[in-house]
Design a binder for these strands. Sequence first.
DNA 1: TCTGGGGTCCTAGGACCC
DNA 2: TCTGGGGTCCTAGGACCC
Length: 392
Amino acid sequence: MEKVYFHVDLDAFFASVEQRDNPAYRGKPLIVGGLPGDRRAVVSTASYEARAYGVHSAMPLSRAVQLCPHAVFVRGNYAHYHEVSAQIMDIFSSYSPDVLQMSIDEAFLDMTGTERLFGKPGDTAARLKQQVKDETGLTVSVGISASMYVAKIASGLHKPDGLTEVPAGKEEDFMLSLPLEKLWGAGTKTQERLRSAGLRTTADIHARQLPLLTSLFGQSTGTFLYNAVRGNMAMKFGEEAKNHSISSEETFDFDLTDRYAIDTALMKLAENVLYRMHRENVRSSTVALKIRYEDFTTVSVQATGSSPVTNVDDMFGRCKALFSKKYTTGKGIRLLGVACENVEKRSEPVQKTLFDFGEEKRAKMEEAIYALQDKHPDIKIRKARLFSKDSG
DNA sequence: TCTGGGGTCCTAGGACCC
DNA sequence: TCTGGGGTCCTAGGACCC
């Protein structure tokens, strides 16, 4: 049977939620991401009114302030956005049992075989859009195609409040009608390389043989480009990613060089990652550390231990060891990040050492603390050193 | 203008084993 | 004393996405 996919994308999601909840913000340029004066902040989402001034996601906030000084600036309420997102994902679930959520503000719906039940895909999408608007006051843009990849691009073509259907068999024509910047998966670097290779349109890529593309761009990117412009991208629906990771990082307002400040930051990040590991009932033996220096160069180290991380002190110890191994320069540090990689379900048995009784006890203790925190989110039980003058 | 935070996937080189 | 070929695992870095 011919496949039918929707890609549904919320329009300027965070900004739209703010404007919905605060009538005074409506019709005005609004920027979510930080307040003017916040150091090193970036724009998370700009309302369409702000985009008219050239403001867009990932732009340094200082730049956004210059472009649009009279905009409304908010830091954002991410817990709230998650709630609204869940409400909308529930609506999606009433249209298809197969919803593949891609992020907080977009999802694929496998609509294959729903025509007898719901009617033509275009009509169904229009109803879905109306229902989201009625129940949440927000608009979405929908792309419809037999190819998930094409549906994804289609949903972005007529934002906001768009509905773009690419008929089956017309995928290649659609791709060839597209400006190169719309090629999802070819970012800044690849766009640059395409330009310098003299390829300016999707048709230019289409005219090149596969071996030429792979010799220019490498096996992976070359094959991707070759298939993408033909609308031939096979994306798997609902396949489990295998290399999960859980990470936490922080960009500091001012660069760090002081060892105590660095250790405090590492402790906070380690605690954060471990808390989430407990909550998700997973474990990991691989700890990774990331350092971004004042000049924005970024290095990383990771190590796979012989047993999983058991508790915060264990995690903190591994992070400190990695840090000492990598940091030899004394350069200013603008970001530290900590991660556990190759995370797996905790139900799988672990080899026990003879010496882990103390560790085990500590892990149990921490679990009890995490459980308490989940129950009473307002209590904060943290390592003594994390209490600083302003937060304690 | 000066660059967030949370992820996934790919590549290339080195270690190690047979 | 000089030197193989293949497979697998691990690591560091980079591209990309929202």
